[in-house]
């Protein structure tokens, strides 16, 4: 499959802080790509730039063939996003929030689709509860549902498993595996290395805004190495470089 996401020399500077430093990478369609890095490595900034929420300082990014900087709105029409912090509007119920997302994204059968998600993620009993009264785990489920409810060709998801219990993490991992099998692409940002190793087909490591590595998981497995050890040695070397 061809690349759905191409990044070339991407930089983002906030005042004195360089959040992204000339990052280049490519993500093939139909894959589950993991963007790994310690806290503050630039993962969230990367997703924001890729979805046109903030402008890069340098370089370029094409997402589903669209220029992320100039066509950010069209990118967000076509992708699904789970932000790092779950933030559904406080005074809408879960169902109303999904209806709102459906109205914005012009999804005709939104109530039926919402019911499917309530069932899959097992939070149907919270459909009429205000978002401000939901637990963090339930809010995370809701944000997961809104990101996938329109079945986007590409989903960019930031730490989607945080706040979910092990049973629900399993449900989500299974869903993601099936999703990419259907030809769609998932761009997963996480620092939970075991999960990345388990479900990703390829990955990249970001540290202090710099790309330290990018390649298929299979290549790593062929050398007999495991992702956590590889990641730690890479980041430690990167820190001392």
């Amino acid at each position: 499959m061809s690349a759905v996401l191409e990044v070339s020399g991407l930089s983002k500077v906030y005042g004195d802080v360089t959040a992204l430093d000339r990052v280049s990478l490519s993500v093939e369609g139909g894959s589950l790509f993991g963007l790994l890095g310690p806290n503050g490595s630039g993962k969230t900034t990367m997703i924001k730039v890729l979805t046109g929420q903030i402008r890069p300082t340098g370089g370029s990014a094409r997402v589903l063939g669209l220029d992320a900087e100039r066509e950010g709105l069209r990118v967000r029409e076509r992708v699904g996003i789970i932000p790092e912090q779950e933030s559904p509007p406080s005074f809408l119920t879960s169902m109303e929030y999904l209806e709102f997302v459906g109205a914005v994204r012009q999804i005709p059968d939104i109530r039926e689709r919402a019911d499917e998600w309530f069932h899959l993620l097992e939070f149907g009993d919270k459909r009429d509860v205000l978002c401000k009264d939901l637990s963090r785990g339930t809010r995370q489920k809701l944000m997961f549902a809104q990101a996938f409810i329109h079945e986007p060709a590409l989903a960019l998801i930031d730490e989607p498993l945080i706040n979910l219990d092990p049973l629900m993490q399993d449900v989500v991992k299974e869903f993601l595996a099936d999703y990419v099998k259907s030809g769609k692409t998932v761009f997963l940002s996480t620092h939970i290395l075991e999960v990345a190793e388990e479900i990703c087909s390829s990955f990249a490591v970001l540290h202090n805004g710099k790309l330290l590595y990018s390649g298929p998981i299979a290549d790593l497995a062929a050398t007999g190495a495991h992702l956590p050890g590889f990641f730690l040695s890479l980041v430690r070397k990167g820190s001392h470089a």
Binding site: T51, R76, I81, Q85, S90, Q146
Partner: peptide, 14 residues
């Protein structure tokens, strides 16, 4: 007053 752009950032809204 009680809104930031945050909750809309993941949607196609400018």
């Amino acid at each position: 007053e009680f809104d930031s752009f945050g909750p809309y950032a993941c949607l196609p809204i400018s």
